[in-house]
Nucleic acid binder design. Structure first.
Lengths: 163, 163
DNA sequence: ATAATTAGTCAGCATGTCTGACGTAAAATC
DNA sequence: GATTTTACGTCAGACATGCTGACTAATTAT
């Protein structure tokens, strides 16, 4: 792991791996995140970011069960419960027992939920498209490569709650 | 998820701009963010993410005043106050009146604060370096281009209540 | 002297996260 | 059939982080 040492030494660290560049990358990641996820109540409803995120995941994985959802969201069961109950109460999400395994609850969007998800996505997409288009396909490919590397913390250094 | 309008048309949307790709990008951004910023108390102290972020900014902008810090962090004065007072109480940050303008408070890290900031960075850097190095300089350049585009949401695309 | 700027503070609220402890139902195992 | 494990639900309490509004205090600008 010590291929790169102090990041201040030019020989071991190409320009793009200097501390300054790395820190700028971190800053950029933070600010981009805020822009994309920091949106307050575009939903016109009482639903917040956590709800939106759950909605998203369910939309992309219809029939997902709670454990699967938890695995993706990486939050606790209790945290999810509140969010999920809100979504159920508002009629955005449907929950029914699996036929294969009666313990499992399969989650899917109602048509109302799908409409909401779509509306939210439509509101968000132009910004994404613009940024992606301006950067170009190659930049987007790089974006994905780097983020993938960052997201997959190799040795599972920690998951939420590991502290 | 049935009828999505524009992003499905091939002519107007190259592959990398399809909904699926865009949504994957969003997911990736979220997960990368969690890996980088979701760390709970690696600080061994009572300081959380907000503290860490302020520490970072002050480290990168020694002598910054409160207004400047607020401008970068984009939080309210009251939110910052809590964080800043914690950092001051723990002796990580120094605050002194400006000579030019006695109303301003210039913030900087104490040696203790600098040591902490450095330790935190050292702990984080290997992960960054690995991801960046594996992706390569071109990918990193793309990463930065895209994130910059995402971060700079041109102007008020949304004010609170953009339903 | 008065107004504007910069900072600090109090009080209260919303959201989202966490831990711990139980409860319930179904499946798997013995 | 009884026991254990799995998958989920829920109550209770806590912490961190953001927000608004309404002030005070010090300093500078007009």
């Amino acid at each position: 792991m010590s291929d790169v040492k102090s990041a201040a030494s030019p020989s071991a660290s190409p320009l793009y791996l200097r501390d300054e560049e790395l820190k700028e990358g971190v800053e950029l990641l933070f600010r981009a995140f805020l822009e994309i996820f920091g949106q307050r109540e575009e939903m016109g409803e009482v639903l917040g970011r956590a709800h939106r995120r759950a909605l998203y995941i369910i939309a992309r994985h219809p029939g997902i069960n709670v454990a699967g959802l938890l695995g993706i969201l990486k939050i606790t069961k209790q945290s999810l419960a509140r969010v999920l109950n809100d979504l159920l109460a508002h009629g955005y999400v449907e929950r029914r027992a699996s036929v294969r395994d009666g313990r499992m609850r399969q989650l899917s969007l109602t048509s109302k939920g799908a409409a909401l998800e779509n509306a939210l996505w439509e509101a968000q997409r132009p910004h994404l498209v613009q940024a992606f288009k301006e950067a170009g396909p190659d930049a987007v490919a790089g974006f994905r490569r780097v983020l993938s590397g960052l997201a997959e913390r190799a040795a599972g250094t920690k998951s939420p709650g590991t502290a």
